[in-house]
Amino acid sequence: MDISTIIAGLLTLIIFSFLYKDNPFYKMAESLLIGVSIGYVLVITWSNTLMDMLFEPLFSNAELSLIIPLFLGLFMLGRFSDKTVALSRIPIAVMIGSGAGIAIPTMLYNRTIKQLTASVMPIFTESGGLNISGIVVIVGLLSTLAYFYFSREHKGKFGAFAKLGTYFLMIFFGTTFGYTVMSRMSTFIGRMEFLLSDFLKITQ
């Protein structure tokens, strides 16, 4: 067995040791995970963003327009001192402002208009029968939206309709829970497979 598998296996076991109780080994591994993760993201961001998108084109290809994001980025570091903290608001303003500008049309189109359009389904089938699924979609959508509508008190008929919305929400939460169990178990199975076959070589 190679050293890589031994280290990966031991670290896996140390993380699992938390199931017994919190212990110094687990704490150590947890700190190492945080540190290594930050280091990894830092290096990848440095190489993929700062080098590839900023420094190389700016200094090798002389793309002078990149001075703007360079200064905006440097202004961000102004947060370290109380005297320069005002500078950091400029790059934040660029990010927040442009983000909001992009969000208006895209959110309206992709999340609202597209979704509303998809909800308009035929209520009757070709043979003239009721299309139950179509009715469920329309009633479910309207009642759930009614539940999130807070400008009117949830009382009387409106309240009952909003309550129907909570039933649909519960179905959504239930299915999501089912899939959450599935994904967590999948990861656990993956780790156990690694431990049993690669690390301990009990199974093939």
Partner: peptide, 21 residues
């Protein structure tokens, strides 16, 4: 989670999705 993206599948903004193990 796959259920989070179901509406995009239903509105054909997404073509297909493979969920879980």
């Amino acid at each position: 989670m796959v259920t989070t993206y179901d509406p995009y599948l239903a509105s054909h903004q997404m073509t297909a999705m493979i969920g879980g193990l």
